[in-house]
Simulated scan of single mutants.
Amino acid sequence: MNKLNSMIAIALIAVSFTACKKDTDEPIVVVPPSDGSTLTLNGKTSESNYANIVYVDFSADKQVTADRKSFNIGLTSDGKFRVVLNPSYQTTATATSKTDITAVTIADPGTAINLNHDITDPLTVSLVDYWDGDITKTAFAEVSATDAENKVYLLSYEGNKDKDKWFKLKVTRNGAGYKIQYARLGETTIKTLDVPKNSDYNLVFVSLENNKIIQAEPVKAGWDISWSYSTYNFGLGSPYWFQDYVAINNLGNVTAAKVSTTIKTYVAFSESDITGLTFSALRDVIGSTWRTSPSQTGAGGSVKTDVFYIVKDSAGNYYKLKFNSYIAGDGGERGKPVIEYKLVKKG
């Protein structure tokens, strides 16, 4: 009898353990990518038609906005040590000849360059990061592991074009992250900010104006395209400031291809049509090619109805994308472009 009771007790313990184990094991939920949707992007506020940067994740039917003036620079989180400018904030920068930030003053000969650049001068392209998103073509050189090799830079941005409002800054490596020393050009007190990398993101952003780290972008796998006001090509190889710039998440392994409706219409485009397309990892593969500009007085302008795009996200999903409106000339509203996208092939 005692033996039987022992066996029953062991069986009950086993059952209880199994039941508890089942209760604590949470099922892995895999959310399928969105089949597609239509979104009105929230780029506009009561203050401006282009106040926000809007990031869009097709697979999640989601948009995230960031104040375009919330940061001044970004720092790469991968194995490289690169500094990028905020192209949405009319940011320009140039290197001085000095490596000691305290030695750079408003009277320094190196400050003679005009950061309030002439957009008709192709040489001013060196003052901005190149708009195709090539991380090696930035105004800042890669941050060297040797501190003495890192120059002090001058930085200007929208609304702060007076020389005494410029920032002087020096970026060095700090272990696996960065250290930034900076001040206004007319100041003598140097601020310091340590910035760690974050592998979940393409970039970690910094507001020099507010002395803090800002995370403007979603996680690197959480967006496919962005819409914003940005630095772009004037047409002469020189930079200018452009509304309605659409970038792909090239640092997050997103690529895209443009399709003419003379080859295939948006509605008719299917998975079999992907073969033969040439996908680009250039940040500006969409750029401004999706719309025509209004006149100087604001009249006209419209989305282009003869092109659409195929976007491959970081998970291998293919979406077809078209723009439906963006301005009064095409029945839309400036600052609130309407996009439409559809899943073509699941990754």
Rank of each mutant, 00 (worst) to 15 (best):
K264S: 15
T111G: 02
I248K: 06
K137A: 09
G159F: 14
E47P: 13
L185H: 11
S126A: 14
V267S: 13
P239N: 15
I13N: 00
R82Y: 10
I213P: 01
L123H: 11
Y157V: 14
S295T: 12
A60S: 12
L39K: 05
S302T: 12
L251S: 10
S272Y: 15
I286V: 08
Y201N: 00
L115V: 05
G332R: 00
K197Y: 03
T172S: 06
V143D: 04
F308I: 03
N249T: 01
Y341Q: 01
Y153I: 03
Y326A: 02
Y89W: 13
K342I: 14
T289Y: 12
T91V: 04
Q63P: 05
K179G: 07
S46L: 14
V344F: 04
T262R: 12
F71K: 01
K165V: 09
T172F: 08
S156C: 10
E187Q: 14
A93E: 02
L203V: 08
D273H: 08
A247S: 14
T18M: 05
P33V: 02
T45N: 02
D25L: 13
S70V: 01
I8P: 03
A221C: 11
A9V: 15
F269L: 06
Y182W: 04
G329F: 06
W290D: 02
I327Q: 10
G300A: 09
N202V: 00
V15G: 04
E149Y: 07
L41T: 00
T102K: 13
D132Q: 09
K165M: 09
G276F: 12
N249S: 03
N72S: 06
D23T: 15
V56F: 00
S295D: 08
N233C: 12
F205W: 10
R184Y: 08
S207T: 00
V30G: 11
F71L: 04
W131D: 12
D134S: 13
V64Y: 04
D132I: 07
V171E: 01
N324L: 10
T255N: 12
S293K: 13
N250E: 07
E340L: 05
D100L: 11
N160T: 13
I106D: 09
Q296T: 12
T45H: 03
S325T: 07
K336I: 01
T92P: 10
V56R: 00
L208Q: 02
S6N: 11
W131L: 08
K161M: 13
K165N: 15
G235D: 08
